[in-house]
Design a protein around this nucleic acid. Structure first.
Lengths: 204, 204
DNA sequence: GTCTATATTAAGATAGAC
DNA sequence: GTCTATCTTAATATAGAC
C-alpha cells in the first residue's frame, strides 16, 4: 500500500504532526489559500514526505473534515429528553461555547468550508446533520407544547445557539479588536451574557 | 495615469462589471481561492483588460473591502439615542437581517476576511469599528441605568446581533441544508424568532 | 482600450537515489 | 522513510500589436 494507515510509532507520530499542522494552516487560510509548503514547514517535514503519508492535499483536508462533523454534533446529541428543558438547552450552549474556546481552529475549519458552499460536506449537512437537528427539534417542540419552555421555532433556536457560540471562535479577531487590550476574558463574559439571553428567552 | 478612475461611460461600465464579478467570486472562494480568470470570465472581459482597469488582483479586492465597512456600520450608526430603546435595538436587528438577505455576498466577503485574521482591515476594526461600538455601548449602558432595558453587557449584545443576523448570509448553505426543500422563507421565520428573542431579553 | 502571446513564479505532485 | 531534483500545471502579470 502506498499510503499506509499509521502502524509504527514513527508513522503514528508523523501522521499526527501532519494533521496538527494542517489544521493550523487550513483553518487560517482555507483550502485553496493553504499550501503544502506551509503545512510541511509547520509539521517539520519535507513536502515529498508529506505526500508519502497522504496521497494529496485534498486527502489531508478530507481527513480533517471527516472526523470533525461528528465531534461537532456531540454536544447536541447529549441534549437529554428526560432532563429539565431550560437546563438542557443552557448546558448545550455552555458546551458549544467551550468548544469555541478550546477548539477554535476546528470551528474555523468548519466555517471556512460552509462559507465557501460546503463543497466537501454538503451531503453530511443534508443527511446526518439535518436528521439530528430534526430529531432535537421535535423534542424542543414537545417541551414547548408541555409548557415547560416558551414556544419558539426550534430550528432557529438551534441556529441561534450555533451562531452565538461559534462567533467567538470564528470572528475572534474582531471580538478582540472591539474589546481592546483591557478586555476581561471574553469567554467568561460571553457565558454570562448567553445564559441571561437564553434563560429570559425560554423561561415561560 | 496607468489605472485611471473611471471617466468615460465605457470605463465606468467596465469598472463596475469587474467589481460586480469580483464580489461574486471573492465572496464565494476567498481571496486566494479566487482567480483572475474566474473574475474576467464573470465580467466578460479578457484578463489583460481586467488589469488595464486595476493594477492587480489585490487592488480589486482592496477596492471592494474599502467601501464595505462603512456600509456595514450604517445600521448601527442609525441607532437613535432619543428613540425608544427596545424599538431602536429591534430596528437595528431588522436592518442587519435585511442586509444579510439583500447583500449576502458582501457579508461573506467580510466573513472571509475576518475568518482569515483580517489582514487587510485590522486597522479599521481597531479604529473606526471599535470607536462606533464603544460609543453605542455607552448609549446602551445608559438605557440600562435608566431602567428602560435590562442590564446586559453592551458589547456582547452587539456581538449577538451581528452573529445572529449574519449567520443567515454566511452559513446560508447550512441553513438551507437543515431546513430542507420544504422550508418556508428562512428570513421571515428568522425575523419573527429574533424579534421574540430580543424583546424577551431586553424588556425589563 | 482591447487583444494575443508570453514571461515569471508558485504550487501540487512524482522520480529516483540513499 | 526521507531527501534532492524535477516535472507539470496554473496563476499573476506584462509586452506589444492593433
Amino acid at each position: 500500500m502506498n499510503h499506509p494507515k499509521p502502524r509504527t510509532r514513527i508513522q503514528q507520530k508523523n501522521t499526527e504532526a501532519i494533521l496538527e499542522a494542517a489544521l493550523d494552516v487550513f483553518s487560517q487560510y482555507g483550502f485553496r489559500g493553504s499550501t503544502l509548503d506551509q503545512i510541511a514547514q509547520a509539521a517539520e517535514l519535507s513536502k515529498p514526505n508529506l505526500l508519502y503519508y497522504f496521497p494529496s492535499k485534498e486527502a489531508i483536508h478530507a481527513t480533517l473534515l471527516a472526523g470533525l462533523l461528528d465531534t461537532w454534533l456531540d454536544p447536541l446529541r447529549a441534549m437529554d429528553p428526560t432532563g429539565e428543558p431550560v437546563e438542557e438547552i443552557l448546558a448545550y450552549v455552555r458546551r458549544k461555547l467551550e468548544m469555541s474556546r478550546d477548539f477554535p481552529r476546528e470551528s474555523r475549519l468548519f466555517a471556512n468550508e460552509i462559507l465557501q458552499g460546503a463543497p466537501r460536506i454538503k451531503d453530511a449537512l443534508e443527511g446526518e446533520l439535518k436528521n439530528l437537528v430534526d430529531e432535537k427539534s421535535v423534542l424542543i417542540a414537545r417541551w414547548s407544547a408541555e409548557g415547560r419552555i416558551i414556544t419558539v421555532n426550534p430550528h432557529h433556536l438551534i441556529f441561534s445557539i450555533w451562531s452565538l457560540t461559534q462567533h467567538y471562535a470564528d470572528f475572534d479577531v474582531q471580538v478582540h479588536a472591539v474589546l481592546g487590550e483591557d478586555s476581561e476574558a471574553p469567554f467568561a463574559e460571553a457565558e454570562r451574557y448567553l445564559v441571561t439571553l437564553f434563560t429570559r428567552l425560554l423561561t415561560p
